[in-house]
Amino acid sequence: MQLSQIRDILKARVLCGEDHLDREVFSACGSDFMSDVLAFVKNQALLLTGLVNPQVVRTADMVEMKCIVFVRGKVPSQEIVDLARERDIVVMTCAKRMYEACGLLYSKGLRGNCDGDD
């Protein structure tokens, strides 16, 4: 799924990486636990989280995630956005809550691709 589709489905606002919305992600992970995210390793993945701090970006970087979506209307500080820009990670924010954001993307075909998924 292209990042531009994710922006449209979630009615998200792009905070950095506006020029890279043609990039694709093939799986997604929603969590506020960074170690859960580190246990999730997929190529070209998206992270949805309600947690806002620099470790979110560092964690996403370690597992080479392409995009972070902050849910529940959370807006990261400029410092956090800059950290993501340096690491070539697209950042968005959306007003939807975690469950709804994940559900919308899942229903449009973006799966977790974890063990146990169909």
Binding site: D32, F33, M34, S35, L38, L51, Q55
Partner: peptide, 12 residues
């Protein structure tokens, strides 16, 4: 609060 301390560090 920063998203750690879930008891996953060493297992990861």
């Amino acid at each position: 609060e920063l998203g750690f301390g879930a008891g996953m560090g060493l297992p990861n």
